[in-house]
């Protein structure tokens, strides 16, 4: 008969810096953290719209012209594009559209959605600012 004693297993913890182990993990972490950044941008924009609703449109536009807001918006735009590329590509992978015998590729959904994003963004800018 052999020795049936069970020895303790080695349990390893995930280190706080696990996401530095590869570029892929790091990019994931960037996406997670920039979500907070985009959430802050949303709050700032809601505040701007509240100025329009409670004071005047000129006040809202002046608020948008603030250099700090412009800088923050540009940074938020870069992060938003990173999120958009991730999710639009995934959308194409999850739900390809069947055309005849072939299916659409994820990059086609990415391009189509980015074009739609540009159109919708232009309409929003026209409605809020240029009009």
């Amino acid at each position: 008969m052999g020795d049936n004693k069970r020895y303790p297993e080695l349990r390893r913890r995930v280190s706080p810096g696990w996401w530095t182990a590869s570029r892929h993990y790091a990019m994931y972490m960037v996406r997670e953290w920039t979500s907070l950044f985009i959430a802050v941008y949303s709050l700032i924009f809601i505040y701007g719209l509240s100025l329009w609703a409670t004071v005047s449109r000129a006040n809202f536009l002046n608020f948008l012209k603030n250099p700090a807001i412009i800088g923050f918006s540009l940074a938020a735009l870069v992060f938003t594009m990173y999120h958009a590329v991730t999710w639009f590509y995934l959308l194409g992978a999850i739900s390809p559209i069947k055309i005849g015998r072939s299916k659409t590729k994820p990059w086609q959904a990415l391009v189509l959605n980015l074009v739609l994003l540009v159109i919708v963004s232009y309409l929003a800018i026209w409605l809020l600012i240029l009009r």
């Binding site: 590869s22 892929h24 993990y25 994931y28 995934l90 992978a93």
Partner: peptide, 17 residues
Amino acid sequence: LVGECSVVCPKGVDPML
């Protein structure tokens, strides 16, 4: 959606998908 599961799969399975 870390996605590394699909990167390391030796059989080309895409578990993330």
